[in-house]
Design a protein around this nucleic acid. Structure first.
Lengths: 170, 170
DNA sequence: TGCATAAAGTACGATATCGTACCATAAGGT
DNA sequence: ACCTTATGGTACGATATCGTACTTTATGCA
C-alpha cells in the first residue's frame, strides 16, 4: 500500500488546528494521518531495502524481535507480535531458516508447535543490519526538527493500541 | 512489512521523555516509531480489506486521489504521488480499469503517456468506499484520546517530507 | 534534419502477502 | 479412554509488489 502526498507545504509542523474537528474535517484528518503513515511505511521499507539489498523489513523485524525479546518463541507468537497472518510468518521464517539466520526446532511443550532460535550467523547479520539502520537513522534524525520523534512515539503507540483493540473486537 | 508490539503499557501517551535523547536511546526511539508506523499501516490495510472485501487500500488511494486532485493525470504522476514504482502503479491501474472504475486514454500532449479518468462506476464506488471508511474512522475517533490525530498529523507530514527529501538525494 | 539520450509505459519474472483447506496434536467433557 | 472441538503449523493458489529489460516517443544538441 502507499498513499498520496499533499502540496509540499514546507517541512515544518504548523501550530494546532483549533478546537476538536467534527464531521468532514475529522474525516479528512483521519484519512490524512493514515495517508502519511502508509507512505512513511513505504519509504521506510524502501530505505531498508537500499541499505540491505535482498533483505526486507520483515526479516529485520523478526530478527530484531528475537534479539530484543529473546530466542525460543513460537511462530504464532511472532505472527501476533507483528499483527500478521500466520501464513505470512511461516513464509518469512522459512526464508530466514533457508538462509541460515534461524533454526526451527520442535517445541517440547507442544507437539504441534515449534521454537525459533537465532543462529550465530543470525546474530552476526543483526549486527550488520543494525549498523546500516543506525547510520540511516542518524542522518534522518539530523534533518528532523528536534522532538519530532519524541512527540510521535507516545501518540503512535496509543493509536496502535486502539486499533489493535478494535481489530480484536472484530 | 509489519512490526512488533511492546508491552501493553496502557493506551495513553505519557508526558515528555525529558531532554533530547542521544546514541542508543535515539536509535531505539527511531526504531520504535518506525515499528509503530509499520504495524498501523498493516492494521489500516486489514481494516479496509474487512470493510471492502476484494479491494485494497491501493485501489482506494488511487480513486481518492482522482476525486480530490482531479481526473486526467498520468500513471507516472500517480506513482510519484504514492512513492511507488511505476510498475506497481501500472498493475493497480490495470486492475481498476478491468473492473471499470477508471479509463486510460492516450495523452494528447505526449504520445508515450496516458491519462487516467474516473468512470461513473468509479465515482459510485468511491462513495460506497468512503462511507465504509468514514464509519470505521468514526469508531476509531471515538476511542482515541481527543487531539491524538491533530497532534500526529503535522509531525507525520514533517517526517514524511524529510524522508522524501532523503530518498531523492539517494 | 539526424542522432544520442532521456523518459513513459508495459511485459515478465521473482518474491511477498495472505486466505482457504488441511493435518497433527491438545484440551475438555463424558 | 473416547470423541468433539480448538489450536499450531503448513501446502497451495490468488494476487500484490517491484526490479529488469524492452518499446515507443520526446527532447536536446550538433
Amino acid at each position: 500500500m502507499a498513499e498520496e502526498k499533499d502540496d509540499p507545504e514546507s517541512t515544518a509542523p504548523g501550530g494546532g488546528d483549533g478546537p476538536v474537528p467534527a464531521g468532514a474535517a475529522r474525516m479528512g484528518l483521519t484519512f490524512g494521518v493514515m495517508t502519511e503513515i502508509g507512505i512513511i511505511a513505504q519509504l521506510s521499507a524502501a530505505a531498508f531495502d537500499a541499505a540491505m539489498p535482498g533483505w526486507s523489513v520483515a526479516h529485520f523485524g523478526v530478527v530484531m524481535h528475537l534479539i530484543r525479546r529473546g530466542d525460543g518463541v513460537t511462530p504464532l507468537e511472532l505472527a501476533r507480535a507483528f499483527q500478521q497472518p500466520k501464513t505470512t510468518m511461516t513464509h518469512t521464517l522459512q526464508v530466514l531458516e533457508k538462509r541460515g539466520l534461524i533454526t526451527m526446532t520442535p517445541n517440547p511443550r507442544d507437539g504441534r508447535s515449534k521454537l525459533v532460535h537465532l543462529t550465530d550467523a543470525g546474530r552476526a547479520w543483526q549486527g550488520q543490519a543494525m549498523a546500516q539502520v543506525a547510520r540511516h537513522q542518524a542522518a534522518l534524525h539530523q534533518r528532523l526538527n528536534p522532538g519530532t520523534l519524541a512527540v510521535l512515539a507516545p501518540h503512535l503507540a496509543h493509536l496502535r493500541a486502539v486499533m489493535d483493540a478494535m481489530r480484536d473486537e472484530n
